[in-house]
Every structure is written in structure tokens, then in C-alpha cells.
Design a protein around this nucleic acid. Structure first.
Ligand SMILES: Cc1cn([C@H]2C[C@H](O)[C@@H](COP(=O)(O)OP(=O)(O)OP(=O)(O)O)O2)c(=O)[nH]c1=O
Ligand SMILES: [Mg+2]
Length: 975
DNA sequence: GGGACTATGCTTG
DNA sequence: TTCCACAAGCATAGTCCC
């Protein structure tokens, strides 16, 4: 029975009955909706679409996962089950012992929040079906619309099919934030400890224990009072759940929605009865996928969690089991989440993403990336954030999602830097048709630490200012020109030795810290991209980039650049910030059958006491075994290694990956060379010697002018030497930072963590892919494979993994060496060696290093610990070292190596390419310099994005930052 | 084995 | 033709390095 349940809406079948990805009627206000009819309508309108196909693909993956779970299940012996059951009993006992029923929590969730707020301004919409959002997607719908099946996260055009009279109202997040603050002001009267920053705009958890005691009122009265005040003072309605902990209160807030309240008595038996009957899906943290997994095991209600505890313990991770235990017992956090400590950043990441009409145009994508970077930089500046990990999110036109991340050595925040890193992540993925781009920054620098001494970059700059370096100055001291004035180069900002890139948006903060700001030096200080004289392409770039002096005479910074910095000082305030996405409550509709459930077979508190730590340890021990057993499929060690040798995103086979890499260096690598690369040779641009792909320097002449770094070679095809074994292509991996291990504690307290992720049985993507591969190849059933001896399995996997796969899991990631990274305090980065790939790529270094992952080997120790001579071209730059930035390739070069670096550039062939590129830029930009992208002219598609670009002068001169800048922006402007 | 990194998936509002 | 969002957090797994 369990099986029929979960799975099986056969993958292959296409019918509305199985197409449930969009609709479920478990939301408040949708109880009477004819779910089947809605599903049918949605199915008819969706089938055949890219989205639909993607959903089916995911469905198949779920079914396979369930199949693996069953396979693991049948291998369990009665003894296994007994052991697991005992382990769970111990966990239950331990958790029970910690139950706290002394607090009284109220969870308040606003009703149809966005819609209700809109209705305040549009009374005409009262009782008429309407949704907040557009044809693409709606955020929420009022209750009148929900009767038709219209709901949150439903595409507008489908909603319209369900409800032809539906009215759409564009979201205005500012209004929702304001309304939210009004409600929270009321809530604080009942719980002064309510955190000022809400995780969600439309919900709040209040600990009213003290209030009730002091006022001598009961929770029901408080809830009623709050609802009344909210209604009177804001014109909105809300629903309230009352329970002894936050999780239960939240669940209860949905019980009598809308405009109602529900209290769960603070008695153990009442709680146990309540949760026993509760659908597992009502539990925060259990989503659609997890529900299906559990249903496949016969778990539908929380009581089932107890009934099948042995099975769960055997098939799910320890973390997941801990969660199940707490759910089964009706436990939840009874304290507010501690606010971030002084100086701590209260968030883990910040991002922006945008969907657009699918395109594969590099120019357009770059333009969009620039917009994202600008918006992100603006937001980061607003919060004073600086981070060192940039993650690019891509959604293909097929709806397949990909992410590519790179960590740089210093914390950045400037639009130019974000763009540079983002672009370096994007190019290797091309060509591909995308419908969404997103940019996220994480790994923030804690302000406290910042002050503690992470300003080496500034120190370096100050040193230089005192010394002989050419300085650069901000041109925008205009008061109203905060961050933005300092136009950062959209190109690389390898701040060796520090955040030379503190640019832009971060400037303000830095200034306060007494960093660099003051002086300047006239025009020379500016980074004009002028070509100084024959061969003198180098130019110092200390901190900020500015357009060529000649173009700056106007004293008016390049408007597009200002935009970039999110600086409205120049007058452009940019379009209203795109809304910090939604953040609201969750509500599952549903009637709550009151207390009449099967008695819970939980251990008694007394027994629990006995269980104690020992029991927990035992559970832990058992859990360890589960992993293998549960996985059913062997832990993919061998597999992982195989995969790891490949480039992360290079989905496709080796050839495809190589294609992307080549794309990244396209400006430098002629097509013919591409072909050669495909044959695993790097032709040195200086002496034409064909180097093996593993070469970093030309093995013949030691030149760095190889078309691309070996890293760009898809692992699969990469050096035979590195093939297979993981270690081999290890190369000089850089060190990375730490991974997840995030916090179980947090996970346990916060809204329940999703179960799936904990599920040890949930085969890693690799395994899924292997299985898919197997299926495609008609190989033996998984179960059989699982029974194979480990060595055999690994071997098989290895073989399978050598086949091209949709997208492989991670590869060894390596943080970007400081250098490239835009603004690093430590340097160390690519230098001359990157020449080949630079010039047309703003942040070549970053890209390279990032790609280097799989293959380098401690060999050259470029980024490793080797004690190479510092003066070696490839040796890492050190903090504070005197460097200059080459205006041709954007690489930072030691002052002691300037001549050698220039020599490289003198190469005739390269010069020609540069000229060609320059010509190309001139063509692109020349016709419409500076003003190219006014709002009116930009965005031919009408989808209109605000920002434009176009630098002031095309920088007519030689190739340089201005040229690159122009290239980046003028293209977009032209569209 | 643990820390540091990246990629993906799930969940929530 | 239009026509499946956006922001954030957490967990898992694989890699490498120490
Ligand atoms: C669920 C969801 C909500 N939101 C926004 C819009 C919602 O009004 C707001 C709060 O979310 P919810 O509280 O889930 O929904 P709601 O308040 O609109 O309706 P109710 O609580 O009465 O069931 O968050 C999204 O933008 N996307 C989503 O997927
Ligand atoms: Mg709500």
C-alpha cells in the first residue's frame, strides 16, 4: 500500500491525475476546490511545455529515489529493524525528557497578506477574485480567488484559466514591508523580545508567557485582543495559533484560517493527540517531496512516524531521525532565536536573480549580469556587507538549474567585482540558452573582524600613497556620491594585497575606517586605459578605475558606472529595488481533527530518563550503519572521485565542457586553436610548441602564452595522467573554506529542516545519474547491483561515470586565489600566465583559477605552498607587494617583472588580436558612445531593464578597461 | 578525520 | 504571442589538503 501511494504515478504516464506539481488543495481557503478539475486544467495548459517536461524529469528522479529506498528496505532483517527501533526509542526518550510545556507561544500569520494589503488601496477588489503578481507568477491570491484554485506560486496564465475573471495587481513590496512593520509594532506590546527583523513579513512568533502572567489574562484573550487590534489599526486580518512551542503554534495558526485562532492546550496528552493525527505535510519542513518519500513507507501522519520509527531510523540520516522524533513528540523551540551578536552579520547570503525571455546571447547575458551585480552591490552597500563567495545561478531554458560558485581571497562588494567574478563563472557555461541569471554573495566578513585587521588592502594602498606609486583618486567626492563615485572597473580588480577593490559601494565604510580615500593625483592617477607608449601597456591600478582622463573632463562620472555602483549620487537612483522577494508565512489549510487519535506508543518519561546519553550514543552508532544500508546504493566514493575530475558545470561530455572553456577565452583563442585544444594540446602562442594540456607554462620556451589553462580542459578529457583517480588531477587545489555542517541545532530549531536532505538513503545525484544511465543502457536493476560486492560496484560506477552525463556533481573546487579575485588582501594570483586569456575577459584570473580545480597537481605549486621564488611569474603575490595592473590583460604584475610582462604583449599575433578586438569594440560602441543606453533606447525587447551603460567615451584609445567596459555595456545598450 | 570548497536539492514565504 | 518568481536557509555529498 505504501508503494502504491508514493510512487507511482508512473513516470511515463502523462495524465492530469499525475500532474500534481502545481496544485494541492491543502492551503487555507481552498478546501472546497475541486482538485481534480484544477489539476486537469493545469495539465492541459502545461503539457508539452519546457516546464512540464522538467517537472516530469524531477518526478522520475523522485520515483527512482523511492525505488532505491524500497530496495534498501527489503534488505533489512528483522534484527536490523529491532535494533533501529530500539535506537529510535532511545531518541524518543531523550527528547521527551527535555519537553518544556511551560511557555505560551502565539504564532500570528496574516491572511492573504499581499492581497490584503493591496485591498486597502483597492477597496473595489473586495470580494472579487484577484491575485498579486502577473501572468508569469503570482505571489498570492485573495480568498475569493482561492475558491477557483488560484494560489501562491501559481503562474498567472494558469490562474487565469482557472478563474477567467481574475484581476492581477502588481506587487509593491514597500507597502508590504510597511504593513508588516505596523503589525509588528502591535505584537511587540505583547512580547518585547520580538526580534526587530522578521524572517517573514507576514508572520511572527510571540512568547506571551510573561504577558499573560503579568496581565492575568489567558492566551486566548491575548490572541483575540491582538487580532482585534490588528484589524482596527491596520485594516488587515490575521490568524493565530496558540501552543507551548513555536512549531506547534505555527501549525495551529493554520487551523482556523482566515481570521481565526486555535489553541492547543499545554498538556502533554493534548499535544500527543494533536500531532498523532496531524498530516505529516502540515509540519514545517516536510514538503512535497518528503511527503512522498514518507508516504512510500506508509507514513502519512505524525503517529505513523512512531509506528515506523525503526524503518525511518534505518533509512534516514541521524539528523532526519532527530527531526522525526521531535515532530512525533510535538516538540519545538520554546525560545526566540538569539539575535546575531554585536558585529555579526545577521544573514548568510544576499542575492538577486531575474528571469527573462530565454536567450543564448552572450552580450545580453552579460548585460543582465551587470544589472544583477549593480543591484546586488547596491543592496550590499545598504547593509554594509562584503562577502567572498560569489555564486552564479543559471536556469536553462529547459528549467534545469545550475549554480557555479567561486570564493575569492578577499571580501568584495563592488558591482564591478561582483560582475567580474560572475562573468568568469558564466562564460565557461556558454553557449547555452538561459532564462534566468542570479547572483549571490555569501561568506560575509563580520564587521568585527573587519575592524580587527582585515584591511590589509588599505594598508597597502596607504603604503603606496606614501611611497612612489601613482595614485589614484576618487573623482567623486561629491557628497551625494557615496559608494558609487568610485567607479570600479568592471574588469578584474585583482587587488593584490588587499581589497584594492574596496571600491564603490564599500567606500563609505572604508572611509570611515580611515582607509584610503584622500588624495589623488590628477589625471595620472586615473586609470585611463590609454596605451602609454609602444609596449607600455601597463598601468597602475591602485584602487579605482576611471575612464580615460580625456573622457573624464566633464567631471561627470560615467553614468552607467554610477549605476553600477548603485550610486544614485549622480542622479540615477535606479529603478526601485526589485523587491526583496517574498517572505511570508506559510499556511497549510486543512481542518484539524481534534484530539482523538491512536494512543502513542512512545516510551514513558521514566524510561526516557534511563535512556539518556547512552541511548543517544547507541542511536548514533546505529545511524552510522544506516548510511550504507540505507543508501542501498553504495556511497559513491569511487563515483565521486570520477566525477570530481570533471568540471562542475560542464554538463555534457568532455567536448561540451571544452567548448565552454574555449568560449571563455574566445577573444584570444582562434578557432583553429580550439580544435587543437580538443586534441588535448595547447599551442604556445610564442613558440608554437604543442604542450600537453596539463602544461601551465610552455614546456619549450617557458612562456605563459598557452591558449588556456589546462584547467579549462574538461576533466574527462584532461590529461590521461589525471584520468580516473581522484588524486591525480588534484593538482594545486586551493584550499577552500568550510562546508556546510551548518548547524544541526539551527536546523532543528528553525522551521524543521527538510527531511530529504538528511536522508542518507537519498542517493546522491551521482547515483541517480548512474541509475538513469543504467536504465538507459538497460543494465541490471539496482537491487542486484546493490548486492554486488563493493569492489565490483565501484568498478561499475567508474565505468558509468566516464560516460557523459547530464551534469556532474561537483568537482574539486578551489577558491579563487586572491589575486583574481578582485580585491584581495593576499595576493597570489595569476599573473603573466594569464595573459592569453585575459584581454577580453575582465576577470580572467578568477576564471582560470576556478577552473583549475580538477587538474593541477602540486606540481607547479603555483598556488600551493611551494616556496617558489617570489619573482617567478607564477608565484603568488603577497600582501602588500608592489604590483601594477596590466591594462591589456588585467593581470597584476610585480613591478620587478613589468618589462618581462610587456614583452609578452609585444607578440605580434596578440597585438593583432588586440587590434581586432579594439576594432570590434569601436564598431560596437563608436556609433553611440556614452549615451548608448538610455532607458528609451535600451531594452528593445520591452522587458525593460533599467540600467544602461555605455561609458562616456568609448575610450577610443587602445584596449583597456574602458574598452572592456564599453564592450560589456555597449553591447547591451545596443540590443 | 576534519576543515574548506562547490553543486544540488528541498523548503518556506 | 503571451506563458511557471524571487530570496533565503539548510543539508548532503564529493573533492582536496593538512
Ligand atoms: C507561499 C508564498 C507566499 N508569498 C508571499 C505572498 C503572501 O501573501 C505572503 C505570505 O505568504 P502566506 O502566509 O503563505 O500566504 P498568504 O498570507 O498570502 O495567505 P494565507 O496565510 O492566508 O494562507 O508571502 C510569495 O511571494 N510566494 C510564495 O510562494
Ligand atoms: Mg499569511
Amino acid at each position: 500500500m505504501a508503494q502504491q501511494h508514493g510512487q507511482t504515478a508512473p513516470a511515463g504516464r502523462q495524465s492530469s491525475a499525475n500532474y500534481e506539481t502545481v496544485f494541492t488543495n491543502s492551503k487555507a481557503g481552498m478546501e472546497g476546490v475541486d482538485a481534480e478539475k484544477v489539476k486537469r486544467v493545469i495539465f492541459e495548459a502545461s503539457k508539452g511545455s519546457a516546464h512540464y517536461e522538467n517537472e516530469r524529469r524531477k518526478e522520475r528522479a523522485h520515483e527512482e529515489r523511492i525505488a532505491r529506498m524500497h530496495a534498501a528496505r527489503v534488505q533489512l532483517t528483522p534484527a536490523d529493524l529491532a535494533r533501529h527501533t530500539a535506537a529510535m526509542d532511545a531518541k524518543l526518550a531523550a527528547s521527551e525528557a527535555g519537553r518544556d510545556l511551560s511557555r505560551t507561544w502565539l504564532h500570528i500569520d496574516m491572511d492573504a497578506f499581499f492581497a490584503a494589503v493591496e485591498e486597502l488601496d483597492r477597496p473595489d477588489l473586495h470580494n472579487r477574485p484577484f491575485a498579486v503578481g502577473g501572468m508569469g507568477m503570482i505571489s498570492t491570491a485573495n480568498y475569493a480567488a482561492r475558491k477557483f484554485g488560484v494560489r501562491s506560486a501559481m503562474p498567472g496564465f494558469l490562474a487565469l484559466k482557472l478563474c477567467p475573471d481574475l484581476t492581477f495587481v502588481a506587487p509593491q513590496f514597500g507597502k508590504y514591508r510597511a504593513a508588516s512593520e505596523r503589525t509588528r509594532a502591535i505584537f511587540r506590546d505583547y512580547d518585547p523580545s520580538l526580534p526587530p527583523l522578521a524572517a517573514s513579513l507576514d508572520e511572527a512568533s510571540l512568547d506571551v508567557t510573561q504577558h499573560c502572567e503579568q496581565q492575568g489574562v489567558d492566551p486566548d484573550q491575548v490572541a483575540a485582543e491582538i487580532r482585534g487590534r490588528v484589524r482596527r489599526e491596520t485594516g488587515l486580518t490575521c490568524s493565530v495559533g496558540i501552543a507551548p512551542n513555536r512549531t506547534l503554534a505555527k501549525i495551529c495558526s493554520d487551523a482556523n484560517k482566515p481570521d481565526g485562532q486555535f489553541r492547543l492546550p499545554a498538556h502533554r496528552q493534548a499535544v500527543m493527540d494533536f500531532v498523532a493525527a496531524l498530516s505529516i505535510r502540515k509540519v514545517p519542513g516536510v514538503g512535497r517531496v518528503t511527503q512522498r518519500l514518507l508516504a512510500a513507507l506508509g507514513v502519512h501522519t505524525c503517529a505513523d512516524l512512531v509506528t515506523h520509527r525503526g524503518l525511518l531510523q534505518a533509512l534516514f540520516s541521524p539528523t532526519a531521525c532527530d527531526f522525526f522524533v521531535r515532530v512525533a513528540l510535538g516538540l519545538g523551540p520554546t525560545q526566540h532565536t538569539p539575535p546575531p551578536a554585536q558585529g555579526e552579520v545577521g544573514r548568510k547570503g544576499i542575492s538577486h536573480e531575474r528571469t527573462f525571455r530565454p536567450t543564448s546571447s552572450q552580450e545580453e547575458l552579460e548585460g543582465r549580469l551587470g544589472e544583477l551585480a549593480a543591484a546586488l552591490a547596491r543592496d550590499m552597500a545598504g547593509e554594509g556587507l562584503r562577502g567572498r563567495t560569489v555564486t552564479l545561478k543559471l536556469k536553462l531554458s529547459t528549467f534545469e538549474l545550475r549554480t557555479r560558485a567561486a570564493s575569492v581571497a578577499s571580501h568584495i562588494s563592488a558591482a564591478a567585482d561582483l560582475y567580474a567574478v560572475g562573468r568568469s563563472l558564466l562564460l565557461p557555461e556558454l553557449p547555452c540558452e538561459l532564462r534566468l541569471l542570479g547572483l549571490r554573495v555569501s561568506s560575509f566578513l563580520e564587521p568585527a573582524r573587519r575592524e580587527a585587521g582585515q584591511l590589509s588592502i588599505e594598508q597597502m594602498l596607504q603604503r603606496r600613497q606614501q611611497g612612489a606609486g601613482v595614485q589614484q583618486q576618487q573623482q567623486q567626492q561629491a557628497a551625494g556620491q557615496p559608494a558609487g563615485g568610485c567607479v570600479p572597473s568592471p574588469s578584474t580588480r585583482h587587488s593584490r594585497g588587499g581589497d584594492a577593490a574596496q571600491e564603490c559601494c564599500e567606500e563609505e565604510a572604508e572611509v570611515e575606517e580611515g582607509a584610503v580615500e584622500e588624495e589623488e593625483e590628477g589625471e595620472e592617477g586615473l586609470h585611463t586605459s590609454q596605451v602609454l607608449s609602444d609596449g607600455e601597456f601597463l598601468e597602475l591600478s591602485l584602487k579605482h578605475w576611471e575612464p580615460p582622463a580625456s573622457t573624464q573632463d566633464s567631471a561627470q562620472p560615467n553614468p552607467s558606472l554610477q549605476d553600477w555602483c548603485g550610486n544614485d549620487g549622480g542622479g540615477d537612483s535606479g529603478p526601485p529595488a526589485p523587491a526583496g522577494g517574498g517572505q511570508l508565512p506559510a499556511s497549510h489549510g486543512g481542518a484539524l481533527p481534534a484530539y482523538s487519535l491512536p494512543p502513542s506508543p512512545l516510551v514513558s518519561p521514566a524510561k526516557a530518563a534511563g535512556g539518556g546519553a547512552g541511548a543517544a550514543a547507541e542511536a548514533e552508532a546505529c545511524a552510522g550503519e544506516q548510511v550504507e544500508a540505507a543508501a542501498g546504493v553504495p556511497l559513491p566514493r569511487a563515483a565521486g572521485q570520477q566525477v570530481a575530475s570533471r568540471r562542475p558545470g560542464s554538463s555534457g561530455g568532455a567536448g561540451e565542457g571544452a567548448e565552454r572553456q574555449r568560449e571563455a577565452a574566445e577573444a584570444v583563442v582562434p578557432q583553429q586553436q580550439h580544435e587543437q585544444q580538443a586534441q588535448q594540446m595547447w599551442t604556445c602562442a610564442a613558440c608554437t610548441f604543442d604542450n600537453p594540456r596539463t602544461a601551465f607554462w610552455c614546456e619549450m620556451c617557458r612562456s605563459s602564452r598557452l591558449p588556456l589553462k589546462a584547467s579549462t580542459v574538461p576533466a574527462a578529457a584532461a590529461a590521461p595522467a589525471t584520468k580516473g583517480a581522484s588524486g591525480t588531477n588534484a593538482g594545486k587545489a586551493k584550499r577552500g573554506r568550510k562546508s556546510g555542517a551548518a548547524g544541526l541545532a539551527a536546523a532543528a530549531t528553525a522551521a524543521a529542516p527538510s527531511i530529504l536532505r538528511f536522508m542518507s538513503a537519498a542517493a546522491p545525484q551521482q547515483q541517480q545519474q548512474q541509475q538513469q544511465q543504467q536504465q538507459r543502457e538497460g543494465s541490471q536493476p539496482q537491487r542486484q547491483q546493490e548486492q554486488q560486492p563493493e569492489p565490483q560496484r565501484q568498478q561499475d560506477q567508474s565505468q558509468q561515470l566516464q560516460q557523459p552525463q547530464p551534469h556532474q556533481p561537483q568537482q574539486p573546487q578551489q577558491p579563487l586565489p586572491a589575486e583574481q579575485a578582485v580585491g584581495s588582501e593576499q595576493a597570489g594570483g595569476p599573473q603573466e600566465e594569464s595573459l592569453h586569456q585575459s584581454q577580453a575577459v575582465p576577470v580572467p584570473g578568477a576564471e582560470m583559477q576556478q577552473q583549475w580545480g580538477g587538474e593541477e597537481d602540486g606540481g607547479d605549486g603555483l598556488w600551493g605552498d611551494s616556496d617558489d621564488d617570489d619573482d617567478e611569474p607564477g608565484s603568488p603575490l603577497l600582501p602588500g607587494e608592489d604590483v601594477m595592473e596590466c591594462n591589456l590583460c588585467w593581470e597584476w604584475v610585480r613591478e620587478t617583472r613589468l618589462q618581462a610582462h610587456m614583452d609578452v604583449h609585444k607578440d605580434q599575433e596578440l597585438a593583432q588580436k588586440l587590434q581586432a578586438e579594439e576594432d570590434r569594440l569601436a564598431r560596437l560602441f563608436g556609433s553611440n558612445p556614452g549615451t548608448s543606453a538610455t532607458p528609451a533606447t535600451a531594452g528593445g525587447s520591452g522587458s525593460g531593464k533599467k540600467r544602461q551603460a555605455g561609458g562616456k567615451s568609448g575610450g577610443g584609445g587602445g584596449p583597456g578597461k574602458q574598452a572592456t567596459l564599453t564592450a560589456v555595456f555597449s553591447k547591451r545598450a545596443k540590443k
